[in-house]
């Protein structure tokens, strides 16, 4: 599940552009500022990678993995350990 605070969103569309599985879209309703905030598509393949949460300039997105997924998922490390990008 993805929670988006509609009144914090400025409608830059970066989350929609950057989503690797193309799971976000502009919604029909207007928010306080008069823009169309982002929302999750009804049919989506969101796998809770949390890229939109990290990259949102207005911190409006919160990703909450579903309960079933949560059991299987290992502890998510934000930064990769090792590798060439030290």
């Amino acid at each position: 599940m993805i929670e988006i605070k509609d009144d914090w969103c400025k409608g830059c569309g970066i989350c929609i552009e950057r989503c690797p599985v193309n799971a976000l879209e502009e919604s029909d309703k207007l928010n306080k500022k008069g823009i169309h905030p982002a929302r999750l598509k009804e049919k989506n393949e969101c796998n809770f990678c949390r890229l939109c949460e990290l990259i949102c300039p207005d911190l409006a997105i919160t990703v909450i993995p579903d309960e079933e997924v949560k059991k299987d998922a290992k502890k998510i490390l934000l930064s990769p350990t090792g590798g060439k990008n030290k």
């Binding site: 009144d7 914090w8 400025k10 409608g11 830059c12 970066i14 990290l54 990259i55 949102c56 300039p57 207005d58 911190l59």
Partner: peptide, 18 residues
């Protein structure tokens, strides 16, 4: 204090998040 004064598409908020 939120939302920020930054323009649409600015990277400053992202840096704050990181």
């Amino acid at each position: 204090m939120w939302p920020t004064i930054f323009c649409n598409g600015c990277g400053n908020g992202v840096v704050l998040d990181y």
